[in-house]
């Protein structure tokens, strides 16, 4: 029996979200006294044996170019074959874009109970109960999975990634893969920006910035922090910023370590997209802004005066550290 951890890749690289689930899956395996094994589909240039440091003992690779692009239909068949090969009873995904298009298919194919958006380790004392976020992060539900095989998709940034001294053995699998019914005609990567969903720090702006011409202060702060930039819905709707930056219930949901909200009042729909952030900082001139109730740190004041000072202070701090 094993826990099988299915890793995301793109551009021939294992994605950051994969490291968290490697550790997460290994922790589940340790808890259940079974082995932790990983699966990589497609061509990657990473050192797969080194993934052992996250706790897995084996990394299986199906090195087939057809799998370089995500096609849930092909992925589900491939994963099914590896599940039977590894006698996996728990299959772990990250609830990323790939996870969302693949994990549910795998669960249906194997008729396995599925929990998407898991928030932590399962309770395996008596059955298999796992906590997940519901109501867009406003609550949690404890879900009991009744089937022998369990499929879990973990919300990114939910658990601490633990490191070990281990290395993994790499097992190349020669599996037949059908041709894809999905023909990819273009891939447009946003370059020069940190992807919002992978960012450790997000700096986000709302109507309080008064217009797209004022975004410089926000961009300066984001740059010094190495942060991704985001915006509230009214800002996206007014085309002050591109749509893909809109975070909130109907936009992107993020869970960074630090979320800095500048001139955002904190409507309940906005909070639903950011409330899994570890630390939230709010700068707003309105002391009654609802965001202050959800935040960890706040300043009531004019963001155009405060934000440049924040940038300068952080520069100072980072400058001192690098000496």
């Amino acid at each position: 029996m094993s826990v099988l951890i299915v890793l995301d890749q793109s551009d021939n690289q294992i994605k950051k979200s994969a490291f968290e689930i490697l550790s997460y899956g290994s922790q589940i395996a340790a808890q259940m006294g079974i082995s932790a094994e990983a699966l990589v589909m497609g061509t990657v240039h990473d050192d797969l044996a080194a993934l052992g440091k996250y706790g897995v003992t084996k990394v299986h690779q199906v090195n087939n170019e057809t799998l370089n692009h995500v096609d849930g239909q092909l992925y589900a068949k491939t994963i099914e074959a590896v599940v039977s090969l590894t006698s996996a009873t728990v299959i772990v995904f990250s609830q990323t874009h790939t996870g969302k298009s693949v994990a549910s298919r795998v669960a249906a194919r194997l008729k396995a109970g599925f929990v998407a958006g898991a928030a932590g380790l399962p309770n395996t004392d008596n059955g298999f109960i796992i906590r997940k976020t519901v109501f867009s992060g406003k609550a949690f539900a404890n879900i009991s999975i009744h089937t022998t095989i369990k499929v879990i998709a973990l919300n990114p940034n939910s658990v601490t990634t633990l490191l070990t001294n281990g290395t993994a053995t790499v097992n190349q699998l020669n599996l037949t893969v059908d041709s894809s019914k999905i023909k990819i005609t273009a891939v447009n990567k946003i370059t020069g920006e940190i992807p919002l969903t992978e960012a450790d720090i997000v700096v986000s702006g709302g109507r309080g910035l008064k217009g797209p011409e004022n975004w410089g202060v926000l961009l300066d702060l984001a740059k010094v922090l190495g942060a991704a930039t985001a915006c509230s819905r009214p800002v996206g709707d007014a085309h002050w910023r591109p749509h893909h930056e809109h975070v909130g219930q109907t936009g992107v949901q993020v869970a960074p370590n630090l979320y800095i909200a500048l001139g955002i009042s904190g409507a309940i729909q906005h909070l639903a997209g950011v409330n899994r952030s570890k630390i939230m900082v709010v700068i707003n001139k309105d002391p009654e802004a609802p965001f202050f109730k959800a935040a960890d740190y706040g300043i009531v004041g004019d963001l155009f005066e405060i934000v440049p000072q924040m940038t300068a202070e952080i520069k100072k701090l980072k400058g001192e550290k690098s000496i």
Partner: peptide, 12 residues
């Protein structure tokens, strides 16, 4: 379709 940090155009 949206990807992390970009988009992909597919014909099906």
């Amino acid at each position: 379709r949206e990807l992390e940090g970009g988009e992909e155009i597919a014909e099906v």
